[in-house]
Design a protein around this nucleic acid. Structure first.
Lengths: 205, 205
DNA sequence: ACCTGAACACCGTTCAAGT
DNA sequence: ACCTGAACACCGTTCAAGT
């Protein structure tokens, strides 16, 4: 049952998971599902938990604390990106942590090793998760399926500002390598959160 | 008509905007709406465009290029945060740019002044937008309305890892100041994208 | 040109009823 | 204990029909 739901989500996205669709796939009535899992929300939780069991713990690489923290952060991004359909489902009920808890714990462990703990660690984790979520919402929005006249190229074609060269306008109309940008952004925020701690300790750089 | 839709979204959120609800508020039938705006998606576009007209252009502050770029980025965050309901609506059809185009243009102008143009400017803009979107999806998810057993405090209570001190576990269960973190994260990514250009120029640090 | 009524194909959810 | 049929209150959308 939960497996069938997970299959629907993996194949057709989070929105495709409806009680009626799931019931039809299983050859039962929707009320049967309610008897077993209670609720749509509880169904989603069960699906996310099942997926969490299947996710292996990714290894953290690097020798320096900064590299290791960055590696742990990138692991969260890669996992979320690889299973974006399930992540989108988890995100829809605010339960992404349920999906990637071991990866978040690994990040906290590396932050601890780097001397970042308590409220500082909480801030660093929240920032990493927000960045991951942000690149993900950008990523699961393929530009070609946008409504008419809302494709970036069409919107930016209307911009004619003397402060901005044509090459830039042309560039922003194009596509970006989100994977590369996500890892870069994670490095930047990681460095910032490690740096603040190092400075507070009087270590400087 | 568009004003009525905007009122619904501002008051009750993006999900509250339905053809039937809007029709009821206006005292007409849903088919009337279809005659006027065609489509739900086109209705959303109209609402977003109306909101965009109402948004004033925020001033960019600071003297140094880095401060000014950061200021322009923070302006996008503040605008999105202040009107999160309409931003959520725009985001649901992938049309946030339609809402904040002038602010994005202002950011590009500051990037240009800082020597970042073309593909580098496109990357910097995409990164800033992803971060804003990320902090926003975190922000518009109040922790108290989460499903049972999914509140952060409950999830983290199950974690007992020797690598992580109790103070950190306690901290991650608590709430964060997203506004402060968002501005910090934007500064970090801005610095990174400016720094890469400066180094390519041979400026070093 | 502008608006309605009725219908279609979807949702999540409940409740009495069956075995 | 487990499952169904029918119903309720919602969606977006269309189409023939009215004025």
């Amino acid at each position: 049952m939960v497996d069938a739901a997970l299959a629907i989500v993996s194949a057709d996205g989070a929105d495709a998971l409806s009680m009626r669709r799931l019931a039809a796939d299983l050859g039962v009535t929707t009320t049967t599902i309610y008897w077993h899992v209670g609720n749509r929300e509880q169904l989603v939780v069960a699906v996310v938990e099942r997926m969490a069991e299947r996710l292996g713990r990714a290894a953290v690489t690097g020798r320096e604390p900064q590299q290791r923290v960055h590696s742990a952060a990138v692991n969260i991004w890669r996992s979320a990106s690889r299973h974006r359909n399930v992540t989108a489902l988890a995100s829809s009920i605010g339960a992404t942590t349920l999906l990637e808890l071991p990866l978040e714990v690994a990040l906290l462990a590396e932050l601890e090793q780097a001397g970042v703990r308590g409220a500082a660690a909480r801030d660093a984790l929240a920032t990493v998760l927000a960045c991951v979520a942000g690149f993900l919402v950008t990523a699961w929005r393929p530009p070609e399926e946008r409504p008419d006249g809302l494709r970036p190229s069409q919107i930016w074609a209307t911009v004619d500002d003397p402060r901005i060269p044509r090459a830039t306008v042309r560039a922003v109309s194009g596509s970006v390598d989100l994977d590369r940008l996500a890892e870069r952004a994670l490095l930047a925020v990681v460095v910032e959160h490690l740096g603040a701690t190092a400075e507070r300790k009087g270590g400087g750089r």
